[in-house]
Nucleic acid binder design. Structure first.
Lengths: 324, 324
DNA sequence: TATCCGAATTTGATCGTTCAAGACCTAGAG
DNA sequence: CTCTAGGTCTTGAACGATCAAATTCGGATA
């Protein structure tokens, strides 16, 4: 099988290289008849544009990079994985490919940006797990590298486009669901203050519930959640608990069972665990979030960049199962 | 910030382009002193090889592709994700990058191979989820595309290198653990015969147990597992069940609880769910498997290809928790 | 009829790297 | 003193695409 280049196609169609290139990139400048002839040659030969060669001229690689994180907790790690699935799909449809990298910490990640940009001419980055004082966005912005974040820029000035889930709306919906079911004493089990996501989830619960409610704090994880939930259930027992994650919710369920208490529990993220054990949970529209990220990237990449950044806030949905 | 090319480095070091190239690719042909001077210029300028240009000359992209599957079950999907993490790490260390793609079915995947090979000059593929009558391996082999499979070539002639988990050893270990704990009537809950992985897991249980044991069959999933387990527990009740997956194990646990039966349960894959609910499970060494895949690929890619394919079979380990 | 115009197409140069071949220099052999 | 060999370095071409400028050609205009 010979190598098929633009020259092969040109010869077969009886035109020059440039005309073939035009058919591919700017079809409207080529006469109808010629265009068809070239298109025919292209498909007859099974020609595909060589990205490396194109990239060398245009400086564009049609590659976007995403960090894949070491599966931490294992329960919540799957959220990013599902986002990644969606992004790969969306990118594929838009003619882009996703490249992965790992990095241990923000500084290492920035070093990786530098390498990827130089070596592979990456077109853009999608950042996940944004957090307070995130140095990555400013580094990229300073170099005019196109990027989008999945997660809003907590605290930082909003100089770039982002997509995020409306976390507060999620816990608010969960709380309202409980209120509608007749619960009045509804607690919240979350992470220590300071993480943007965690604070937003607490805020949603607070907004829907009003003034009162017992609050428990725990670092993420089943054990830690069980400890905090036990304390809540013993002191000022609520009849229902809204949790900041499925891990915490699982802990809460364990604690309630141990203490023999009836207690409704709602988790967050709708992970596989929730589905498996029938835990009611708030579900993030990850595929849509990924699709929107890709849309924003295309705006940035395919010319017509909007002068000011776009933000997308997606509402999560409540998946009701047995626990509430 | 100017673009730093090999010519920039050459000028600064007072040598020709080719000498810089030699320092990078074949350092031993350059005189010590010159080599140092060039190296200094490289790091002073922060020079990085442009992969696209290199690729155009050499035809090698230092890119390997892996398919990312739509998270099916959600419980077991995470196995591939963890493998992916490991592979990205291992590839990064070896100077390769991982590119993702999705494909719906074997034929679509083969079409994607064709596109990726032409457009991106991919160096190699890592295939997962091998199965009986897999058309992908022969397609790749016919075109001399380097690839490795994670999962042995079920039924097909072993003409390529692969890495796999010793599934039978896993269920055998689980069964032996139960025997040691005094169980005598140990059942197996697995998938219908025909899937290589499923058959191997059943085989391991059978080997360790000897002649007897009730067998249940169910398509993967919690519901389906619960139904099959209920039947087992009612007819010829075992005191323990070895399962082909964590999903099935979860179903078995549900069935036992409903029927009020004491029954030890062991799952397979050590997913997040298992960790969360304390399910004893067989754990696959996924990071190591990924590393081995990368090792095999390097053998194929970095010259010295072994004349006959290499196979790696890794033993899983039993993670003992509360359910057995 | 000569000139100009615009649409359609072609030609030559270029992106950054590596390959293949050649040039230079020093040292040892004849 | 010439010749050869080997180590070290340089030069020109090539990979496959796109950009920018040049060319062709039929038809409208003066």
């Amino acid at each position: 099988m010979e190598k098929v280049t633009i020259a092969t196609v040109a010869q077969r169609a009886g035109v020059s290289r440039q005309t073939v290139s035009n058919v591919i990139n700017t079809p409207d400048v080529v006469r109808e008849e010629t265009r068809e002839r070239v298109r025919e040659a292209i498909s007859a030969l099974g020609y595909r544009v060589n990205q490396a060669a194109r990239q060398m001229r245009t400086g564009r690689s049609r590659l976007i990079a995403v960090r894949i994180e070491p599966a931490r907790d294992g329960i919540n790690g799957s959220v990013l994985d599902r986002f990644l699935h969606g992004l790969t799909d969306a990118a594929g449809l838009a003619g882009y490919r996703v490249m992965l990298y790992t990095a241990d910490g923000d500084d290492a990640e920035i070093a990786t940006y530098d390498e990827l940009l130089n070596a592979y001419d990456l077109d853009a980055f999608v950042l996940t797990s944004t957090h307070h004082g995130d140095p990555r966005t400013s580094w990229l912005a300073a170099r005019d590298v196109p990027f989008v974040t999945f997660g809003r820029p907590w605290g930082a000035p909003e100089t770039h486009s982002w997509v995020d889930i409306d976390n507060a709306a999620g816990t608010a919906a969960a709380t309202e669901h409980l209120l509608a079911a007749g619960h009045q004493r509804i607690g919240f089990l979350g992470w220590p203050a300071g993480s943007g996501v965690g604070d937003a989830r607490r805020e949603g619960w607070h907004r829907a519930l009003g003034p009162w409610g017992p609050v428990g704090e725990a670092t993420d994880g089943v054990e830690s959640g069980a400890v905090a939930a036990r304390k809540m259930l013993q002191n000022d027992p609520p009849t229902a608990i809204v949790c900041a994650s499925d891990s915490l919710a699982l802990g809460a369920l364990q604690a309630a069972r141990e203490l023999g208490r009836e207690c409704a529990v709602i988790g967050f993220d709708d992970t596989a665990v929730a589905r498996a054990i029938g835990l009611t949970s708030v579900s993030q529209p990850l595929a849509e979030a990924a699709g929107r990220c890709m849309d924003l990237l295309r705006e940035l990449l395919d010319g017509h960049a909007p002068s000011h950044p776009t933000n997308v806030l997606l509402p999560p949905s409540l998946v009701v199962r047995q626990t509430a």
